[in-house]
Simulated assay, not measured.
Amino acid sequence: MTVPVSVQQRIRVLDAHGMSWRSIAKEVGVARDTVTKYAGREDCSPGPERSVSRPSKLDPFGATVDGWLQSDRFMPRKQRHTAKRVYDRLVSEKGYEGSYSPVQRYVKRWREEHRLPSDGYLELEWHPGEAQVDFGMAQAVVGGDRVDVHCLVVTFPYSNMRYCVALPGENAECVCAGLRTVFEHIGAVPLTLVLGNATGAGHRIAWDKVTVVHVFELFVEHYRLETRFCNPNSGNEKGSVENAVGFLRRNIMVPMPDAESHGQLTRYMPERCDAMAKETHYRKGAPIGGLFAGEKMDMQPLPAKPYDVIRWEVRKADKDGRVQIDGNYYLAGPSWRGWTLDVGLRAFERAIEGV
């Protein structure tokens, strides 16, 4: 499945492919100044959200409207909600006191964002610079405790090169942190990422629709990546990475590794992958490492600035000075109780700042 591409990402991908800015402006349909702004940006890392939007009376009912419109996908076309019907139900069933116009705009925007794509299946012929990404589970001793380790696996099917890193979870921050680790280890950035259906970079909201998480959206802009998600129930589209998950689990995680931290374990894993690259490619009859060295010639260089993998949330501290993110409580300190705080979430740490 093709992931919806923002104008910013499309500009940066075309610029990475060597297209002139004048041609990009014509191709994308934007002004030259817009191309200059986004193609020349060196750092797309997210920052705290300082702007405060005016609350709408419709905001508390967003999840309800989403559910109604999502359910419409399983109904005949002539038996689906119109914007007027959504408005009438909100008033009569949910106590909505706002006007009709915000509902009309919300429904229109929802349908534009969830329009079914016309793209077909992924090609199964892999080209240099294309990478597949997915997660696998294994166990290890980390800091003296036996824990489940989420192994982000990145494969390059053209050369059959395989890498994995150890992470504490599978959310978007972990995906981006793991990918950045691989990119910096190999000293290059692939042209295209094909992601497994269950990675935390996006959420599947319909059979053929994925909503990309904001921190990952900025990540692919920063590294000028083209991205695709595998279609559901299409295992043949991700055979390379699924095979690599099992291969790396058997060859790196047996016997069970013992490390002081996820970081120490991750430093060991790519080095072990490099050592295994001396093996011969199962079809091409050449060492995998040599094939991969040639494949990297078709990849992009690392950007001048690394991407700061952080997700910012605005939260109000409770009476004990704690803030709640994703169902977990984090202590800011008693002196912050009642304050509105910026909370930055990275794969391995949390940063809390006063607004």
Rank of each mutant, 00 (worst) to 15 (best):
V215P: 04
E217L: 10
A332D: 06
A332R: 02
Q324H: 13
P301D: 07
V254F: 14
L265H: 09
G246I: 00
E226M: 09
K305H: 13
R249E: 12
G294T: 08
R249C: 07
P255E: 08
K238G: 04
D326Y: 07
D318I: 00
Y268V: 00
E313W: 14
E313Y: 15
V241M: 07
Y307N: 10
M297E: 14
L218S: 12
D318K: 03
E295R: 06
R337Q: 14
P287T: 12
A293W: 06
L331Y: 07
Y223N: 08
G338D: 01
K284Y: 03
A332E: 04
L291Q: 09
E313L: 15
E271Y: 08
E260K: 10
C273P: 04
M256C: 14
K319E: 12
R283Y: 00
G338A: 03
C273I: 02
V220C: 02
P255M: 05
Y307K: 09
P257F: 01
H214V: 02
E260D: 11
K305Q: 14
V254N: 14
Q324F: 11
V213S: 08
N251T: 12
G327D: 06
R228W: 07
F219V: 03
G263K: 12
I325K: 05
R267M: 10
N251G: 08
E295S: 06
K238R: 15
I288N: 10
P232M: 01
N251P: 04
P306Y: 02
